[in-house]
Structure formats: structure tokens, C-alpha cells
Write a protein that binds this DNA or RNA. Structure first.
Lengths: 211, 211, 211, 211
DNA sequence: GATGAATGAGGGTTCATTCAT
DNA sequence: AATGAATGAACCCTCATTCAT
């Protein structure tokens, strides 16, 4: 049987695979680095047999790739669903930040996903290629934020003269900045709410400023 | 004997330990993920015996922690040495970006370092705490960019009303964004030079804009 | 339900079991060593479900035992059918050798069968005992070659003073010699046709020579 | 470090590797089929750690290949050492048969070795090629019996007009036949001593008979 | 009777760590 | 101090077997 890649339509993903994806997210959220994730910890969390993992995937690496790809896809979809109804870019960014505040698992998964696609490992390349092959978007930042930026342009919140790539990377970068603040706040006792305000103002300014 | 922590004064670091640090940087630069780095590959690169690694460090994790900490320390020192003489923040940022363009090893090491300090793993916490304990700076972003920002404020390039944390995180994340662009350009055919210009303008604007 | 042993009368063997026996022969003929044969590869070849195998057999070992036993039984029967009409021992041996030349699958199956009954493993013992229990012959060499030797004695081709065991082992050994030649000819570029002639002359001489 | 192949000069074989070779021979002699031999059972017998096996060999298959090759090499060497002083081919064959009678381990190892080189598996091919590459002999039968046959020709025991290949295969297969008799005697109550006599006479006759 | 998804015991292999030299 | 052969715990993966459908 052909194996799972992570690009399957959501409704076609077998339930046990969804349980595995969720287990990976839990483990990442709890601070396991990718190398510390064991196949057995995934299957135990998922409540399935170890052998079952290999019914759906060829290797541990494939499991992780599938889980990561599924994570970005569902994050992108979720954002589009929840953000579209909101009336302004400011509200949308606030919603994203609230979401990250609420669910630390999401935060760590996002950070990990960024790690996976920015190092130059074999695994990284594989995940990026697979994501690209099967979607219309050119990069994963566009995958995540392309829609709300296009909306913002239509709405007039965003200056249409600014190159799309810059807009996307700017939003991506500011979101990442906020995430770094909240990821390291216990260590570096940062005044997170203050920075949050500044970050949001920064985004809005960048989106409106002609170059 | 007490072991190496990565915080030793540079002149007190044994030559074999420096060889090991360099080996780690080489491996990261070549696309090894941290989990793929073996103690044996480090010692082979360093041209020393495997047992020797354990004369200086208690475990593989300590080796990596030492190498990472040394990397940030020497990057910070190097930046301060080379950037101080430059006359403006713009020139300083350009110098940093040129440096990253030139040496892909630095780029990947930096990205990896960021990974290590933004996930919530045991290892990450240990590295962050050790860096904090032994330096006057509050977080690693300040460790890297604190000096040039303070210089910019003195010089008048940067608005002194903006909170220090915001300035630091902004520079840090813009630099990170640029690195992500160049790390993923083979995959996502991004127009890197164009983005570079926009990112630099963005930094300068963020540094000058009263909130 | 009582399971298949390999000793069933041919017409009582269920069709799916025959498909499995054939699959085993195919796999052996293709160079799979017994340890490399998987239950799943047998059932896939046979075009049946994996679970079905366990309707007929208790274990993988039983499947292989059944297949081996069936193989020798049908080989013996086939030889007797085809060899009896031939007029001389020489013609009969030539027929056997032609047959082995034609079908490499037979050759490898025969070699494998010999392996199975000459090592001193548990499996080997089981196969030998089962074959003995259910046939009148005293050993598998007699099982295969007993009939043509008895024919040869009646016909006068073979000296009746020579002990039966010796006659049987001699034929067996010479057939095995020929098989070793053709099994290793690619490796050792042997002049097979020349050796074939010598081997046949050797058999005929051994069968006629008083001791 | 480059790994062990089984073709190393005897004095260069590390002691732990010799212990492993011996363990393999013990296990085979006790009736383990090759597939039943575990790396852990080899290392336990050898009294070494499991990891140590992989210091010397790349895989379990390599361990077995090395052990088999070493077995044939030392068998050949031993035979040449012990058989050369004997005055006639008859005495030499008798010596071989006595040896096999005495040490059942040798018998089973020999039979197993023959299995390994007569099936058409990947492993078989590898062992044969390796043996051929590194020795002057053309095939493994010559490897074992070439010397005593050449001696016999010089001495006049063997007719020099008979093709070498035939002589070699004949001796080889008669020896194999004897081994099969003694390997299966518990099962098939054969009169082994009687057969032994006949087999030896058969060999001598085959060696002297012009074609 | 037939199936194949699910299982988990068990094996091969890796690699951080030790320790005798 | 330096070494690297030896180790064995731990992990990935396979595959014979089961059982609900």
C-alpha cells in the first residue's frame, strides 16, 4: 500500500494517523527536540501499536515529515477560517498573538516548524519540496500569511506598491519576534505586553509605508 | 578535574577544545542537524581521540552547549570589533549581511543557535541559563546586538525613547528574517537582493520611529 | 480444523494451498534463501490474503515444510511417470539432466530441498520424519531414485549384487554433482557439457561394477 | 577502519574475530540454521559485547560470510598439512572420512558451507566472489581438493588424462555423499560403514578409469 | 472461509561513554 | 593528558501471527 505523505486531503487521513500527528504535536509542545522523539513515544501517545506506525509510514523521518506538513497545512487553514471574518489587519494580528498566548503547544510547534525549514538538512529539503509540490504557494511564509495580506491589500490596510515577498516576510518576521519573546520570557523576564504593542505597531507601519 | 563550560576566557580554552568547537561549526555548516552530530564525527574532524573529548566535557550535550556558547560569544566579540569603527547603523547592518552572504557556515550556525535557544527543551534552557549567569547581558539578543544599538543611540541614529528590548528584538528578528531568506532561496526562488534592501530600510525605520 | 501437512493426496489439496506451494517454489527459484521468504511474499504471489495462510497452516514453518514435502512428492511422481517409458538408464539420466537444464527453478528447489534435509536443524528433522512416516521408502534418495534403479536391475542395466543403498546414493550423488556444476557455472566457468558426459559415464560404470 | 572480510592472513585476524568465527562454527554444529543465528548468540558465545561485533564487521551477513570463508580456508589448509605426508589417495580419503566421523561440527559446517555456495542467493554469490578474488583457485572445490589431486597425479594414483574439473567435482561430491549419509543416518538407518567402503572404492575407480 | 489492519516481541544496529594502556 | 577498543543500553524496524469483520 502506498504510504502517507502528509499532503493527503484532511478527510482522507486515517484516524490512527491523525492520532499520531497529534502525538507529535504534544511531544514537541512539551519540549522534546525532534531527535528525542521516539517512534514508541508517538505510538504510545496515539494509543496504537508500534507496528501500526509502519503500516502508514516508511520510517520515523516520514512520520515527522507528515506531522510537520499536516501541522502547517492545518495551521494555515485554521488561520484563514478564523481570520477572514475579522475586519482589520490589526484585529487579525491580535487574534494570532492571542492564539499563540493561549496555546503554548502551537507556539512551540510553530517554532519547530520554522527550525525544520530553515536548516539545510536533508529532512528540511524534503519537507520543503513536498509542501511546494502540492500547493500553489511559493514558500511556507506565503502559505501561512498570503491570504490575510491579499485581504489587507483589497481592504486598503496594506499598501499595494510594496512587493508581496517583503510583506509576507515582514509579517512572518514580526510573528516570529513575538514568539521569541514569549518563548524566552521565563528566562529573560521581558515585558511581553509592551513588546507586543510595539510589534503590532511595527507591522502596521511596515505595511503602510511606501518605499 | 572541572570540565569546560563554554564560558571560559578565550585564551584559557585548551587548543583541542577549540578544534572541537570548530568541528561542530563545520558540521552544522554542512547541514548536519544537531541530532546527527556524533561525538566521533566531532573528534575525527578535530583530529583528536574520542576519549579526549571526555577529558574536557562530561557528555555530548556539554560539548554542544560549549560549542554553541563559544560561537555566540565569539560572534558577539567579532561583531563588536568589526562594527564599532563603522560610522552608521546602516553600514553596520550592511556589514553583518555581507558577512552572512560570504560565509554560509556562519549563517547556518546562527540559525541553529537561534533554534537551540527558542525551543523549550532541557538543552535550550541550560544554554540560556549559562549564558545569562556569566555575562552582564539579560538575553542573548542583547548579547549580540546590545552594543551597536547603544552606539546608535549615542550617535543619534536610533531614537532613545524606544524601549531597549524592542530595539534589540527588532534588529535580531530582521537579521533572522534575512537569514531565512538566504537559507531558503534555493527552494523558493526569492529575490534576495531586493528583500535585503527592504529589510534594511525596515530596520532603520523601526529604529527612528517614535511610537 | 486439522491443518495441512504436505502429505495429503494431491487431489485433496485445496486450490489456495497449491497456489502457496507454487509461490514458495517461485521464490526459491528466484534466489530467496529460506530465511528471506516471508509469509506475506508467499500469500502475495499466491494472490490470497495473508490471514488465509493461517486457515491452512499453523505457522510459517509448516507452510515451508508442506511446500518442500509436496515438492519432493511431485518430483518423484513426475520422474516416475516420465522416466518409466524410457528404455535405458542412460536415457533416464539424460532426461533428468535435460529437465534440470531447462528449468532452473527445479534445480534450485532440488538443491534447497537437499539443504533442508541434510542440516541437523529442528526443521530438517521434522520434514524427514514426516516424509518417512507416510511413505514406504526408507530415505528421500530412495524416494526419488528407488524406482528407476529397481527398473534398471530388472532390465539388467544395473548389477544386482551391489547393495541398494549404494546404488541410490551413487545416483543421488552424481545428480547432485551435475547440479553443482550448473549452479556454479557462471562463477567458475566450468565446461558443463564435458562434465555432463563424464558424470553419466561415471554413473553407468558404478552401476555395472562388481565390488 | 576497514572491516574484516574473512580473507585476512590467519595471523592478522584479531583474537575476538577468531572467537566469533568459532562461535559461528559451534552454533552451526549444534543445528542452528543460518537464519536462526543471532548476532547476540555469536557474541555471547565469543564472550564479547554485541557492539564489538560491529567494530569488526559491517553487518550480520558479513560476520557469517567471514566465518564461512575462514572455515573453508582453514579446512583447506588443515587438509593440505595433514594429508600431504600420507602415502596414497586411499589413505588420504580415509583420513578425511575419519576426521568427519570424529568431529560432527566439521561435518555440519562443511554441509552448510556447500549450501551457502550452491544456492543462488545474493549471499552465496558474495561469498563465492570473495573466495575467488583472493585465491589462485578457480572454484571452492578445487580450493579444497586441488592439492591432493595434483599430488595423486604426480604419484600415479590418478590418471592424468582425466579432466581436472571432473576429478575435483568427483572427489567433492563423493565426500559430500558420505557426509549426507552420516548426517541422515539417525533418520534413515543406513549401513554407514558399508557405504563408506563403497564410496571410497568408487572414488578410486573414478580416478583411475580412462574415459 | 477469507481477509488485511493491527499488533508487539524480537532482532539488527548505533553510538555515547568508559577504561586499560 | 591522550587514546581508541570495547561495551551495552536503547532505538528503529520487521514480520509472524491474530482477530474483528
Amino acid at each position: 500500500m502506498s504510504k502517507i505523505t502528509g499532503m493527503e486531503p484532511v478527510q482522507e487521513i486515517p484516524p490512527k494517523v491523525l492520532l499520531m500527528y497529534d502525538a507529535v504535536q504534544q511531544l514537541i509542545g512539551e519540549g522534546c527536540s525532534v531527535s528525542q522523539i521516539r517512534v514508541s513515544s508517538i505510538t504510545e501517545r496515539a494509543g496504537i501499536g508500534k507496528g501500526t506506525a509502519y503500516e502508514y509510514f516508511d520510517s520515523k523521518e516520514e512520520i515527522l515529515a507528515g506531522a510537520f506538513i499536516y501541522y502547517v497545512r492545518s495551521m494555515a487553514e485554521e488561520m484563514n477560517m478564523q481570520l477572514r471574518p475579522l475586519g482589520s489587519l490589526r484585529e487579525q494580528i491580535n487574534f494570532i498573538f492571542d492564539d499563540l498566548d493561549r496555546e503554548s503547544r502551537k507556539k512551540y510547534c510553530f517554532v519547530h516548524f520554522v527550525h525544520e525549514v530553515t536548516d539545510n538538512s536533508q529532512f528540511s529539503r524534503m519537507v520543503k519540496e513536498r509542501l511546494q509540490e502540492n500547493s500553489q504557494t511559493r514558500n511556507f511564509a506565503e502559505f501561512l500569511f498570503g491570504d490575510i495580506i491579499r485581504q489587507g491589500i483589497e481592504r486598503g490596510d496594506i499598501d499595494s506598491d510594496i512587493p508581496m515577498d517583503y510583506l509576507i516576510y515582514t509579517v512572518f518576521c514580526k510573528v516570529l519576534t513575538y514568539m521569541m519573546c514569549i518563548c524566552t520570557e521565563e528566562c529573560f523576564d521581558t515585558d511581553v505586553p509592551a513588546l507586543r504593542g510595539l510589534i503590532i505597531e511595527g507591522i502596521l507601519r511596515d505595511m503602510k509605508t511606501k518605499i
